[in-house]
């Protein structure tokens, strides 16, 4: 059957080309970034000419380095996680353990809608909050670090809700029954049995959420990030962030030095998300083997 052989060959060839093409593209992308970024990475990129001790301790402002962007991103991630993680976990616990099926369905729909909302709309939401505040309570309201953190928190909230709910629901029924049969109350069952058993799953979801918070550009663009702000001192200050810095360089770089800074920041951002990715992979591998033992 030559036709059969030929069609098999052609299809396999296509599969090979697609796969090899993808690998090559990714190699090029990362290789290019490495090559350009590595040469740019040095203390001057971070701190300009300010001695690094003085910059880290905040004694001397850095104007031309990416240090303020690093700090700004860090603040943003921490603030957003502080808002989203407790809220998301509490919502996930309620959905999986307390809510009636009807309520669960409705809230799930709302969470799905939120999960599908593009980040630019989340940014627009932050912007409308400021517009509303200006019209009503606070005429001097403006976009700021806190607003960005709230919007980013809203962006990663559905991840955390979903992963908490799913991990809790994945605990096997006969393990789940241990709690009540030992005389635990519902909260004790959740707290001492279900949460420890699903902690790695939840943790990996939280890390994925943090990764999202670190990389997102569209939200902060509309809610308070600027190209030059220095290190934010208060919650209502403007701030800098790494992803936005990268975007700015791509849009309007004027010198080789700025370009180098762009490549350096891109590499740093890639390293941050890469580390988070490794952490998740590690956690998930451990989770899988654990559940294999269990079942």
């Amino acid at each position: 059957m030559p036709v059969r052989r030929i069609s098999n060959r052609v299809l396999s060839g296509f599969a090979w080309i697609a796969s090899a093409g993808l690998c090559l593209t990714m190699l090029t992308l990362i290789g290019f970034l490495m090559k350009r970024g590595m040469t740019a990475l040095n203390a001057k990129l971070f701190f300009d000419n300010v001695p690094w001790t003085a910059a880290v301790l905040g004694r001397q402002p850095v104007f031309d380095g990416i240090w303020p962007a690093v700090v700004g991103s860090f603040y943003l991630i921490v603030l957003a996680s502080l808002i989203a993680v407790p809220l998301g976990m509490a919502t996930g616990i309620t959905l999986s353990e307390y809510a009636s099926p009807n309520i669960r369905r409705w809230i799930s729909l709302a969470v799905d809608i939120l999960a599908g909302t593009p980040s630019i709309i989340m940014g627009l939401f932050g912007f409308t909050i400021i517009l509303l505040l200006r019209k009503t309570l606070l005429p001097q309201a403006r976009t700021c670090l806190l607003l960005s953190a709230v919007c980013i928190a809203l962006l990663i909230l559905p991840y955390i809700i979903r992963v908490t709910q799913n991990s809790l629901e994945a605990v096997l029924p006969h393990i789940r029954l241990i709690g009540p049969s030992c005389g635990f109350t519902q909260w004790q069952t959740i707290c001492y049995l279900l949460l420890p058993l699903s902690s790695r799953g939840i943790l990996s979801g939280v890390i994925l959420g943090i990764g999202r918070a670190a990389e997102d550009t569209a939200v902060i663009m509309l809610t308070g990030v600027v190209a030059q702000a220095g290190i934010p001192q208060r919650l209502w200050d403007k701030f800098e962030a790494i992803p936005f810095h990268i975007y700015c360089v791509a849009a309007e770089y004027q010198s080789v030095r700025q370009l180098d800074a762009g490549f350096g920041s891109a590499l740093i951002l890639l390293a941050i998300t890469g580390i988070l990715f490794l952490a998740v992979t590690f956690l998930q591998r451990v989770v899988v083997t654990r559940y294999e033992i269990l079942s």
Binding site: L177, P180, G183, F184, T185, Q188, I293, L294
Partner: peptide, 22 residues
């Protein structure tokens, strides 16, 4: 009497050995 107290007094063991991975 709280439900948890009742369940403690009536001990139960299941078909599948339900040990915790602790």
């Amino acid at each position: 009497v709280p439900l948890s107290e009742i369940r403690r007094r009536i001990g139960m063991v299941f078909q599948t050995p339900a040990v915790l991975p602790f």
